[in-house]
Simulated scan of single mutants.
Amino acid sequence: MPLHVPPAPAPALRSVLTALSSPTAVREARTPSLLGAQGPATPELPLPVHVLDRITPEGVAATRLTGWRFLIRCGDRAVAAAETMLTPDGWAFSHFFEGPYITSTERALRQAESVTQPYQPRLLSVPGLYMLTLWLHGDCAADAATGHPAATDLLIPLAPAPPGIAAHRPHRVSELLPVLTHRTLPPTPPLLGSPA
Rank of each mutant, 00 (worst) to 15 (best):
L86P: 04
M131T: 00
P88R: 06
G67Y: 00
L123W: 04
P88C: 06
R77G: 01
P88H: 04
Q120E: 09
S125V: 09
D76G: 15
P118Q: 09
G90C: 08
A92W: 01
T146M: 12
R122Y: 05
P40L: 05
M131E: 10
A108I: 06
W68G: 01
P170Q: 06
T63F: 11
L180Q: 04
W91V: 06
F70S: 01
D139F: 02
L180Y: 06
A167S: 15
L35A: 03
A81N: 01
L134V: 04
E98V: 09
D153P: 10
M85Q: 06
T84L: 05
E113N: 10
G164M: 10
A141C: 06
D143T: 04
G164N: 08
E83Q: 08
P121T: 01
A80N: 03
E106Q: 15
Q111H: 06
A62I: 10
E175G: 00
A62P: 03
R64I: 02
L71I: 05
S104P: 13
Q111N: 03
R54V: 03
I72A: 00
V179I: 15
L65C: 05
I72V: 15
P121H: 07
T42R: 13
T42C: 02
R110L: 12
Q120F: 01
A167G: 14
G147Y: 06
P48Q: 05
Y130F: 09
E106D: 15
W135C: 04
D53E: 15
D153W: 07
V79G: 01
T146K: 14
P43W: 03
F96H: 02
P127Q: 11
G147Q: 06
T42W: 00
V79P: 05
G39S: 08
L132M: 13
R77D: 08
I102A: 00
W91L: 06
H168V: 00
I72G: 02
P57H: 09
A92Y: 01
P178C: 09
G36R: 15
P121F: 05
E106M: 11
H168M: 13
A144K: 01
R110H: 13
A112H: 11
E44Q: 14
C140E: 12
P43R: 08
L177E: 04
L35N: 11
H148S: 14
L124S: 01
I55Q: 05
L158H: 07
L129T: 03
T152N: 11
Y101M: 05
E113L: 11
R64D: 09
S104K: 10
S114D: 14
Y101E: 14
A166S: 14
R54A: 14
L35I: 08
V51G: 00
G128L: 15
Q117W: 01
P127L: 13
A150K: 12
A37I: 09
A37V: 13
G164A: 07
D53P: 02
T56C: 08
P127G: 07
Q38W: 07
E175S: 14
A150T: 00
A92T: 12
G147P: 13
L71P: 02
V79Q: 02
T146G: 00
F70I: 03
